[in-house]
Design a protein around this nucleic acid. Sequence first.
DNA 1: GGAGTACTTTGATTCGATTCAACGAGGCTG
DNA 2: CAGCCTCGTTGAATCGAATCAAAGTACTCC
Lengths: 335, 335
Amino acid sequence: MSGEVSVIDVAKKAGVSLGTVSNVLNRPERVAPATRARVLAAIEELGFIRNEAARQLRAGRSRSIGLVVLDIRNPFFTDLAAGVESSVADAGLSLVLCNSGDDPTREDHYLSLLQEQRATGILITPAARATSPIEGIRRRGMPLVLVDRSSHRRQCSVSVDDLVGGELAIDHLISLGHKRITFVGGPLSTKQVADRLRGARAAAERAGLRVTVMETDGQVFGAGRTMGERIAAMPARRRPTAVFCGNDLIALGVLQEMTRHHIVVPDDLAIVGYDDIDFAGAAAVPLTSVRQPREDLGRTAAELLIEEVVSADSHRHRQVVFEPDLIVRASTAQS
Amino acid sequence: MSGEVSVIDVAKKAGVSLGTVSNVLNRPERVAPATRARVLAAIEELGFIRNEAARQLRAGRSRSIGLVVLDIRNPFFTDLAAGVESSVADAGLSLVLCNSGDDPTREDHYLSLLQEQRATGILITPAARATSPIEGIRRRGMPLVLVDRSSHRRQCSVSVDDLVGGELAIDHLISLGHKRITFVGGPLSTKQVADRLRGARAAAERAGLRVTVMETDGQVFGAGRTMGERIAAMPARRRPTAVFCGNDLIALGVLQEMTRHHIVVPDDLAIVGYDDIDFAGAAAVPLTSVRQPREDLGRTAAELLIEEVVSADSHRHRQVVFEPDLIVRASTAQS
DNA sequence: GGAGTACTTTGATTCGATTCAACGAGGCTG
DNA sequence: CAGCCTCGTTGAATCGAATCAAAGTACTCC
């Protein structure tokens, strides 16, 4: 490159050796004040900018950690990311945010990228798939924490008890007298979704009821709309009286279709969402939702990862599980 | 590190020189098929993973572009990011997403980071501030495109005509007979916000009206709630009959407070938002909003940047300006 | 004046992939 | 069979910063 200024140029300009420049940059207390000032002046004057690639090459690791999420457009994940970022920034690291879109191919791509970049560590909400490359990554020694997904012994994880979440939702609906309850969400190959359904079924069974399922192929707005349309098309007496949705985006999609078809929420159809994103409370009919501690989840995940990085030897893997809360709003209010 | 496998190890294993390994990696057609197979086998067997830092050091640039946004939790920006990502991925680059939170300090931090990483280029929605480091970055030769902000000649930019957006909103409200109109948004030091207000004022003036202003200190949900509360506290006859909000998050915040205080939208207060994020249509009262082509904005910005990178010499800076649309929904419906 | 101590500075070496001039082997031609 | 290509392969040099053993300097104290 034309104007690339290196430590050597700075050293020449300041009349010192390049080692001294390096010391000014990394251990300024070792350098005599006068020399330090001279070097800093030279840096300023030449517009020297450290080359991170060279540092990394020497150090063997980069100073960034990767966060791979399922859907960057879902506020749940941006809130989570915000939590991660605050912890990561505190540790002087930076965050590389990757959006897999629940697509294993894209997930693979980002994981390779992070490995090639010799990331300090990886936080990931893994996509649904048969065999995961995660095991291989751990074996190669890169710290990795599962987010929003529990795991066993071999690695750290941070999750929310989705079984309890499902139970909370269904218990609430049952207490309101609902009998025809449908779960809307998917794909069921996604662990979180499957667990929420499992919790829901357990709670229903206890009351001698069954939960029917409408499986979606994604946890997005549009998927909720599609299912909402299908629900609206059902004859009123076969229609469920309540739906429990895999997440708030789906719930909002369903809600929107109900409004469009003049099906009154909660009178004709009660809706429970999941995540309690900020928009849930601002919805057409404020949404009852199972709240997850989104930022805490992110913050804790990052802290576990950083601990594993900092004290690799003494580190013991931990599985942190948060408890969800049910936030009751108008979408399930007693009419 | 213990188990780091380098090209040299691969070369030894395959019984070739390291130059050949490099050729297999970068120009496989130059290598005889038998040799290539042998090298690939060695790579596989040793679990070799390219060291991106070393590549970058040699190349002088990284293969990633930075996107610095004002607020990652605003769906407008994640939609924009999705557009950017699709273009960037097509070009074989990767995206580093940075959230400045409209804080100049954090913006500076991320910009330094991107420069140290020798990013291929930068896309940025700059924070509001007196003197920007952007000019300096350009002078040092790093391609940079302004997003959601117009500029003059010296650099590329992609924006939406916020003056027109403001006019659309106010013309619509005036056509509905509103006379006491308030703009809720801020900070006014942010160019986009100021332009929207300017457009609004121009339209109002044409009709012989004035727009009052309630300035917020951020473009977030909470800011809208605060102002909503203040509006709700006004005596009904002094209260505006319509508000035009700087973005949808603020509008949703205002809307939520109105609902809480039993002030009927649109009858008692009409609301117009800005951006038309997905949640606007799903709101308590579906929101009339000025739509920006969010993904297109991102995609176009990335394409301009990539063009500047690829054909640095022939590249001519361009200022792309999109036109916004007004999407009318219930929050301003004629009652 | 010399020994001892504390503080600074030096510069050769290292990290791992890429590049490119140079070399060798083999084939083809006149 | 010499001369000339082509095609594959080689390996030393390179990128920029960090490291650390060793050398240098300044100062104190007896």
